[in-house]
């Protein structure tokens, strides 16, 4: 009985559940650069590169899925490495704008190289190779790696750079090197999410990876809160499920998406998963008990 119920549920909602997973990966990918004090909004573009690289390999050359996934991580990481050196000299809004422009360049290139990428029509008939445990495993491994990293020398260096870049440099931290590490690793995670997502949805097109997607990824991380690793995951869950929950509002549901974003920024500056506030609440509960 319960199994049958779950079967129906899974038939209808499996894509949604797995989207939560890939979106969580994306949110973590931008968390990584934010944790290092950089606002880079190129993650949608890195996702696109990962998606196209892996999908072209499985679609045209029949490469095994794990290899295609690895390529889907390596290609954006390489791209990040190439553009990283000149781009990461910029900071603050200049970096945000440069990465935004890079994202648009990638989208337009995908749109105009019809012979390889199918242009505006995108890639069709990508084999649906992604299983639920692929997504779960990718998320678990990413979380484990990031969690371990936060508590290491690298994590402390990121934190120092985020707090004060100049001071971190004066303390002997290799600012440029750590920034590059965060940027490249973030690109690889975004690429992994893109590759998994491409083999889930059957179809990919350049329109999916534009400005809107970049903003959505950023929103998930900010919404959840970037003070912890849980934050971006929580943000991804909420932002993926919200449109489904707001379905009754029809045309106006995205209005609420925007409204929620504004309200969070105004009233919960550290995001929903604000560890300090949660601890405070827990403290109140304990005292009452």
């Amino acid at each position: 009985m319960t199994v049958a119920w779950f079967g129906t549920f899974w038939d209808v909602y499996s894509n949604l559940v797995l989207s939560v997973g890939t979106n969580a990966l994306l949110a973590l990918s931008i968390w990584l650069t934010l944790a290092c004090g950089m606002l880079s909004i190129a993650n949608a573009a890195f996702m696109a590169i990962g998606a196209y690289a892996s999908a072209l390999l499985t679609l045209n050359f029949g490469w095994p899925f794990p290899v295609a996934l690895a390529a889907g991580m390596a290609a954006p990481a390489l791209m990040a490495f190439l553009i990283g050196r000149p781009t990461l000299r910029l900071s603050g809004v200049y970096l945000a704008m440069a990465t935004l422009a890079f994202g648009e360049v990638v989208r337009i290139v995908l749109l105009n190289t019809d012979r390889v990428t199918g242009g505006a029509l995108g890639l069709n008939g990508i084999p649906q190779l992604t299983r639920w445990w692929h997504v779960a495993l990718a998320l678990a491994v990413t979380l484990a790696v990031l969690w371990r990293m936060r508590r290491s020398r690298i994590g402390r260096a990121f934190e120092a750079i985020k707090e004060d870049e100049t001071a971190a440099g004066l303390m002997g931290i290799d600012v440029a090197g750590y920034k590059m590490l965060a940027f490249v690793l973030g690109a690889a995670i975004a690429g992994l999410a893109g590759a998994l997502n491409a083999h889930l949805t059957f179809f990919i097109g350049p329109g999916e990876y534009g400005f809107d997607r970049a903003v959505e990824i950023l929103t998930m991380a900010i919404l959840g809160g970037i003070g912890s690793l849980t934050g971006p995951v929580v943000g991804a869950v909420i932002l993926t499920l919200l449109p489904e929950l707001l379905r009754a509002l029809q045309n106006f549901r995205l209005v609420f998406n925007g409204l929620i974003l504004v309200l969070i920024v105004l009233f919960l500056p550290r995001g929903i998963w604000d560890t300090e506030r949660l601890r405070r609440w827990a403290g109140i509960v304990r005292r009452q008990a």
């Binding site: 603050g92 950023l218 029809q250 925007g258 974003l261 504004v262 500056p269």
Partner: peptide, 22 residues
């Protein structure tokens, strides 16, 4: 910090665009 208002205005843009579309 200056990135926060930028993100808030993204939200405002989403509200206005979708309200007009609605």
């Amino acid at each position: 910090p200056h990135l926060i208002p930028m993100i808030a205005t993204i939200g405002v843009g989403i509200i206005l665009t979708n309200a007009i579309q609605g």
